[in-house]
Design a protein around this nucleic acid. Structure first.
Lengths: 364, 364
DNA sequence: TTGTACGCGTTATCAT
DNA sequence: ATGATAACGCGTACAA
């Protein structure tokens, strides 16, 4: 009988001469339970193949040593990492934070942990995050938006791992996606205001650079206007940071600019709309009598403000859940629908109304 | 000369007979560049040790093959994973989302990626997340709060990895922490209101179960009151979900309850305070004449609401940054201060004032 | 049911 | 400066 080949790792001694207790390995558990590492592994990965008595001993040994199977070793051995990556612009925006939270919960149920990366709307940063995640062997990827560094999707595809673009739904996209149709949503808002009789529009949006969702929104508005032979004056289109401050600033700029002033202002987020609303009030305008304002997202506060904000509701947690489901299905070898549309729901509250008569024939 | 021992992995054929192109390994890059894997590794990890000409060839080969060093292999070989874990209650709360975002940015600068876990205020879930992270070989851990499952910190300590408790600062805690002193902050708020002449207080907080920060806040209020020989009536202490709805509901409950009614209501979050403010207005109360209200966090909206909310500002991004710095220092072998205090700043706006006279001698 | 032994992809050591 | 090779910790054929 050949002597068993067994690697023995000597405990390193720390400078002060004490034993530096090392993180236990399967080997240690095996020794403690008086069995082999193979049985340790089986106890955790296919317990039914292990005799109950042995199983009990192994579990006890593992618990007493505080052993956890080292994921890197396992990943190398079986090719699975149980890690999924998600890349979003920023956690500072509730819509994305909520999405990530829902994905994390869905994956956690399946024992999958989530690597998170923020791009801050910088495609190069997104690229770097994706690269790092691929190197870490993520089994799937979710990424917000299609406007990415050239080659990013090829890099993912070369790894043959499932991926999905979230937040936006684009029927003609080459990528699987889960989200709502930004173009359609803003067309809906615009049409609603057109139906009320508005003819002069203001638009306050996030920067559309590197942001296909915002570009789609702008397109949606323009198209709805074009259908009525209308357009958007350059001074009535403001692009900037998504929060209250920029909403205020933009509204003031529009109304301090040349006439005609807008009778309706469409905003890209509820926060922008709230800013516009607050500034309109500060300027002595009455909403919706003098000015209609719409938001987007339906944050909790939208319903509470006075007057309650007309907006559009998107279930971001649902987007996160569906994205996770989509990726999980692919990981299970199933073939889910490549594109999943979530509907954005128009919520009419009290910041929209027909324009008052003195606006109906603006002095051009 | 012994023939070189070289493992050759045969490309597996996919069912349809086509070659399934596999993810490239260092071996493939080495072959393409006509050198050994050792040089490939060096090219990326200590480029100065590689001849410029060779380096160039290796980089070109790696780029053309799309090779990324597989992190699991690297982790196994050098014992470093470049992963750090963070466990928070929920991303749905801005304060935590902002913290995580700041940590992610700080770690990304050092090539470290972040594993994220949410506990939803459930210690068992936090425990499970920590366990999964340790198994994945995180090199450091940040976790919100000290109220954890017994044994959780021992589990971390056994792994000898740096960790830090965030959001709360407790001078007498056995754990390193980065945050502000919740007890002191709420004592400050309470003292301010006491100085204005208030004697009957309401308190609207998040649930204090499994939440040391909230428990500390409650204590802070109680202590400040006790210093003046005052107490808190049970019906004036409401615990519930941190958002607007619960603020409304709680305020109504207090004022529909038996007299005396509070002349000042202290809230655990700005959203709760906004809810209380809206409900107070709906009930015909004028703030701050009939009722003072304070929030906490200083969210963007706090300054915008009418009247602007008196609250306390915490720089959560700073907490995230400092926590990351603390962990990075430890990873670098430095010894940073074990406890880092961030100050919460009282921001007096317009929802606080002296109680009106009819409240000064409440009918008990 | 359990054990043996190899391989996963990389890095570090040592030799050249 | 570069190459050969032995770990790293685990999972899993295959053998017993």
């Amino acid at each position: 009988m050949r002597p068993e080949k067994m690697r023995i790792r000597v405990d390193r001694l720390s400078p002060d001469g004490e034993k530096a207790p090392r993180v236990p390995r399967a080997q240690d558990v095996a020794a403690a339970a008086g069995i082999s590492t193979a049985t340790v592994s089986r106890t955790f990965n296919s317990p039914e193949k292990v005799a109950p008595a042995v199983r009990k001993r192994v579990l006890a040994a593992a618990a007493s040593l505080g052993w956890l199977p080292h994921a890197a070793g396992a990943a190398l051995a079986n090719g699975r990492t149980a890690i999924v990556g998600v890349v979003i612009p920023t956690l500072g925006q509730e819509v994305f934070a909520v999405q990530v939270e829902a994905m994390q919960a869905a994956f956690a149920e399946r024992g999958i942990t989530l690597l998170i990366g923020c791009s801050n709307y910088n495609p190069a940063a997104a690229q770097a995050q994706v690269r790092a995640m691929l190197a870490r062997g993520v089994e799937a990827l979710a990424i917000v938006g299609e406007t990415q560094e050239p080659g990013l999707f090829e890099m993912i595809q070369a790894r043959r791992i499932p991926y999905v673009v979230t937040y936006g739904y684009q029927p003609d996209s080459p990528h699987p996606c889960v989200g709502f149709d930004n173009h359609e949503a803003f067309r809906t808002i615009t049409r609603h205001l057109l139906a009320l009789g508005h003819q002069t529009f203001g638009l306050i949006l996030q920067p559309k650079a590197n942001n296909d969702r915002v570009a789609a929104r702008l397109d949606g508005v323009r198209q709805a206007l074009a259908e009525q032979g209308l357009g958007l004056r350059p001074q009535h289109l403001c692009e900037g940071h998504w929060e209250i401050g920029f909403g205020r600033k933009s509204l003031r700029a529009m109304f301090e600019g040349p006439r005609p002033h807008p009778t309706a202002v469409i905003c890209g987020t509820d926060l922008l709309a709230i800013g516009a609303l607050l500034e309109a009030r500060a300027m002595g305008l009455t909403v919706p009598r003098d000015l209609s304002i719409t938001g987007f997202d339906d944050i909790a506060f939208a319903a509470e403000i006075d007057p309650p904000l007309t907006t559009m509701r998107v279930d971001n947690a649902e987007i996160g859940r569906l994205a996770a489901q989509h990726l999980l299905a692919l990981l299970d070898g199933n073939v889910p629908a490549s594109k999943v549309a979530v509907t954005a729901q128009f919520v009419e509250r009290a910041t929209t109304a027909a324009p008052s008569s003195n606006h109906l024939s603006p002095r051009l």
